[in-house]
Design a protein around this nucleic acid. Sequence first.
RNA 1: CCCGACGUAGCUCAACGGCAGAGCAGUGGACUCUUAAUCCAUUGGUUGAAGGUUCAAAUCCUUCCGUCGGGACCA
Length: 506
Amino acid sequence: MPSQALLPQEQAGGLEALVAARRVRIDRFRELGQDPYPSRSGRSHSTVEAGAAFLAAEAENAAEGIQGVLLAGRLVGAIRRFGGSAFVHLQDGAGQLQLHLRRNLLGDDAFAAFLDLYDIGDFVNARGSMFRTKSGEISLAVDDLRMLAKSLLPLPEKWHGLQDVETRYRQRYLDLITSAESRERFVKRSRILSAMRRFLDGRGFLEVETPVLQPIYGGGAARPFTTHYHALEQEMFLRIADELYLKRLLVGGFERVYEICKDFRNEGIDRTHLPEFTMMECYWAYADYQQMLTLTESMISGICQEVNEGLTVELEGRTLDFSTPWRRLTVRQAIQDATGIDIEAHWEDLDGLRQALRELNLACAPQPTWARTVDELIGEYVEPSIWNPTFLLDYPVALSPLAKRKTDDPRYVERFEPLIAGFELGNCFTELNDPIDQRGRFEEAARQKASGDDEAQPLDEDFLRAMEHGMPPAGGLGIGIDRLVMVLTGTMNIRDVVLFPQLRQR
RNA sequence: CCCGACGUAGCUCAACGGCAGAGCAGUGGACUCUUAAUCCAUUGGUUGAAGGUUCAAAUCCUUCCGUCGGGACCA
């Protein structure tokens, strides 16, 4: 047996010894004329299909009929050896199934080879017949076992799993192998995305792609990542939003468009922010923000119903209720409820608003403009007070350079944000399509930038030219996909819904 | 960027100024229905890195690296 040959390497100790022992086994496979990394494999059933087939046959008293089942997957957990037999679980993309290996079924040589040459973590083909153990677990009695891919490094321990947060992010594959919960969360993320695409496709929206690298960034307030494009010898920005390009498509005659893509914002990381995040933006010509509101409500509640088979989600021990209709609340009312301040009493009066804050002893980081101060009040006092899905409506025009004014009160714009679990899930407004008003708002933003607001958007002449050719009235909506996945999966940290969150390079 | 906590065997964790340990995994052995298998034996360490204090440092101090939490910045 090859175990004799392991002794010298064993003295090396630690991980090196574990790897050295497995390398010896790879050599042993080759000495036996077997390829430890064969190109061909086979499969007749997934683990779940095999279990289902067995149950169906058992119901007809024909359980012996399930023979010649060929599984493919990874050995996981622990090998439970009993001299002449052994148990181990095989995990594939669908689930797990227990394998029972017996000397009298496999033969002496094959059984010895299993004990000596196979490790937890290896990919194998296992062929056999289905049966139920004495303790009732549906299992495969293996009559042929083949190596598909020998592993060199050990998997995390079976009982505690992978606890180290950093390793879970840096080596996500280990997290996925050992944590069914994590695996299911990412499966659900995928289902949420496909449900959203089905919803939008079903309403006549066209999925499009727009530039990630942009010569001028816009469509939001954020610091961008910058890069240099050598061939054109010019500075470029990674997009902070795709809004201005999607609107160009409205100008071009597409009436319903959407894009699901990564946006990049050069800002800090916390439970609800990552510098690289996924956004869905959609634009609907001839619709306004009220129609978009209905669309948002039915889309998100519909997705929740579809992926969770219900309208409630448990998050941090509390219940989120996605039943429609969601609560509606104006910005003015929400700020008044949360702080006692009526923003109309200090309209576009930065000093007056600051004075009111001081009088009420409200902690609020100093902001360079009136608009940013109102924004700060929403972020500090309104958002944390919201739990169930709520539409925050009607923002002051100074906060929203791309939104259309309300016809009955031009101090405000037709805009809402859906708030859930203390944070904003998205942003929506009736899009500004008056090119003269749009130019004025850009110029106002440029003045704010000059007066210290380094997040204000730069003027985009090319976009203005598009709008000057005529843009239909439209509603536009953006939904933060990562945050949507958080609330629909009951996850309180955005890093747990992103497969490979950014970490500092080590 | 600031404050705090943490970093020990492949994994999960002890030891908190006095010989660096356990469980799991691994290795050798017993065992043909286990599922955290059991039993016997056993390998495995630059205690994140560098420096300092001390007779003696995983432990105390300094700097650096990394992660987490909070703040700052920020949708």
